[in-house]
Structures are given as C-alpha cells and as structure tokens.
C-alpha cells in the first residue's frame, strides 16, 4: 500500500472512531454519569480520549495538509495577485509549520491533562 492510499484510508477510518466517540460522550452526558470523579478516575474514558486526540491529529494533519496543497498554491493564490502567487510555497510551508506545532501542543496538553 503506497503512502497516499494509506493517508486516504487513515483519514476515513479515524473518522469512524470519532463517530463512535461522540456517541459515547452523548451517552455519558444523557445518562448523567459525568462528575469530577469520573474525569479523574475513569480509565476507559482516559484511554478513549487519548486515542481521540491521537487520531484527531492524524485526521486533522491529513485534512489541513490537503486543504493547503489544494488552495494555497501558486495557481490559486495567483488568482488573487501575482505577488501572492510568487510566495505561495512560503505561505503554505508557514501554514503547515503552524498547524503541526498546534497539533503537537494539543497532543502534549491532552496527554498531560489526562495522565498526570
């Protein structure tokens, strides 16, 4: 399986997990199980939330990267102005750096909050 195809499937199978996770959260809310002790002690929630942030990063990375390579290109930004088109690659790389950094920050925060 090549890398592009792996990414394509990773994004879609992770989405299935989000669907299950949201249903799980709604079930918790509606069945009145949520309180401080739950967030502090429930191992199932901790594991599922950790899995959520990991998959959300993979899913989000592929999605944002695709949006970048689709819309922040020499051609598309060139429609706005020649100057912007000329620096399209720099703009896209900056944008990629920006969301990768945020992704790391989110993952580390989640890990720290959940497990420490």
């Amino acid at each position: 399986m090549n890398l592009g195809r792996l990414f394509w499937y990773a994004q879609r199978y992770s989405a299935l997990y989000f669907l299950v996770f949201v249903i799980y959260l709604e079930f918790l809310y509606l069945s009145n199980q949520l309180n401080f002790i739950f967030f502090e002690k429930n191992i199932l929630f901790k594991v599922l939330a950790t899995l959520f942030i990991l998959l959300a990063n993979i899913h989000g990375f592929i999605g944002l990267w695709t949006v970048g390579t689709d819309y922040l290109t020499k051609r598309t930004l060139g429609f706005l102005s020649d100057g912007l088109g000329g620096v399209a690659n720099t703009i896209r790389k900056t944008y990629e750096f920006f969301f990768v950094a945020i992704g790391f920050a989110l993952t580390i925060s989640y890990f720290y909050i959940i497990w420490f």
Partner: peptide, 27 residues
C-alpha cells in the same frame, strides 16, 4: 474541519483541564 482543529480542540483542552483538575475547578 479547520475551525475544529484551530478552535474546538484547543477549547476542549481547556474544558478537559478544568473538568479534571480538581473538584472546585469542576464546579
């Protein structure tokens, strides 16, 4: 999707922190 990554997830970090830090932050 963009809004989720740049706004919903960071706010969820804040919410999870408050909800799981202590009983008083939860309250």
């Amino acid at each position: 999707g963009i809004i989720i990554f740049f706004l919903v997830l960071p706010v969820s970090v804040y919410a999870l922190m408050e909800l799981s830090y202590s009983q008083s932050s939860y309250n």
